[in-house]
Simulated assay, not measured.
Amino acid sequence: MKLKKYVLTLFYVVSATAVVSAQYKEPEKKDKVEVFRPEMAFDSLLAKKMLARGTAVIKGVAFTRQKHPLGYGVPLSPRILANKIKIVLFPVTPYFEEWYQLRKDKESIRRKRFVYLSDQAYRYRLEAITNSDGEFTFPDMKPGKYFLQGMLDYTLRGTYNAYTGSGYNNYGGRTDYYEKKEYYKNKEDRIEAFVEVKENGEMVKVKLH
């Protein structure tokens, strides 16, 4: 009887070990990451042609505005200028249009769903660095449609009422006491805009926010 019990216990131990070291392991739902890709092939010749030298200029200013901790905008909040950040310009090819639409439809950071831009497509880009006023320039541009993007880091600042204790007033009721305190939270905003150059020699101005 003892031998049978020992064999049965050993079987459970071996079985449990087999599950841990199995060839396939189902991830927890919260750990699943979904990656989507455009079906269209990337046309490198078209992208290269769109980024050839022209005589137009794209000038812009990059900024964001402080948002509420819950994510919605704060009316009349001052601009937070993009101080010395990188602005990336992509030619809007049919591949890129599919990628952008797919991102609008599918991407969700909270649900861990992401849309992949191919390494080849990412190589065909131009870059500019803003000054301390958030201003940037892309010279020598050809007529065409372009997509601008930057990642702007800033510190969210706000106040909250911190509970400091309670006491009883002269009428026998309880009074709670609060003290206003500041909080700081690091944020990163993805600022984006489409811009179109219609003809050579023109200057196109854009607000990137």
Rank of each mutant, 00 (worst) to 15 (best):
S77K: 04
S15I: 08
R53Q: 15
S108E: 03
R190A: 13
M151A: 14
G134Q: 00
R125H: 05
V92E: 02
T55Q: 04
R103A: 02
R123H: 09
A193L: 08
V61Y: 05
Y163H: 10
E182V: 13
Y146H: 03
P91A: 02
M203W: 07
M50N: 03
Y122V: 11
E135N: 12
I80F: 07
K198F: 08
D133I: 06
L70I: 03
E98D: 07
Y160D: 12
L89P: 05
A62C: 09
R65M: 06
V19T: 13
K187Y: 07
E97L: 11
E202Q: 13
Y178S: 11
L76P: 07
V35Q: 03
R190C: 09
T93L: 04
P27Q: 07
E127F: 07
A121V: 04
I85M: 07
R103E: 01
F147A: 06
G73I: 11
E127Y: 10
R103K: 14
S166Y: 09
F90A: 03
T164Q: 08
V35N: 03
F63N: 01
K2R: 12
V197Y: 01
K86W: 05
I58K: 04
M203K: 14
V57E: 08
L8P: 00
K32E: 09
Y160F: 15
D176G: 00
H68W: 09
Q149A: 10
T175A: 13
P139V: 11
H209T: 06
N83T: 03
P91H: 02
K84G: 03
Y171V: 09
G134T: 01
E34K: 12
D43F: 01
I109E: 08
G172Y: 12
V14W: 05
Y154S: 01
I129M: 14
L76D: 15
E34L: 14
E199S: 07
S21R: 08
T159D: 13
Y183Q: 08
F90D: 00
A22R: 00
V61S: 12
A52F: 09
N83V: 03
R123I: 09
A121L: 00
A162I: 05
R37N: 03
K84M: 08
N169F: 05
K145R: 15
Y100A: 10
D140I: 08
G201Q: 09
S21M: 10
K25S: 13
G201L: 06
K2T: 10
G73H: 14
S166P: 00
R174G: 02
D119V: 12
K205N: 12
A162Y: 15
L208N: 01
M40K: 14
K4D: 14
F96V: 05
Y178I: 02
L70D: 10
Q23K: 14
P139H: 04
T64H: 06
T64A: 05
V19I: 13
R157K: 15
N170I: 10
V14T: 11
D153Q: 12
L81W: 08
P143V: 10
N170Y: 15
G54M: 03
T9D: 12
T155F: 10
A62W: 01
R53W: 09
A62G: 11
E188A: 10
F42K: 02
L8S: 13
P143M: 04
E202D: 09
G201N: 01
T17Q: 11
D133W: 11
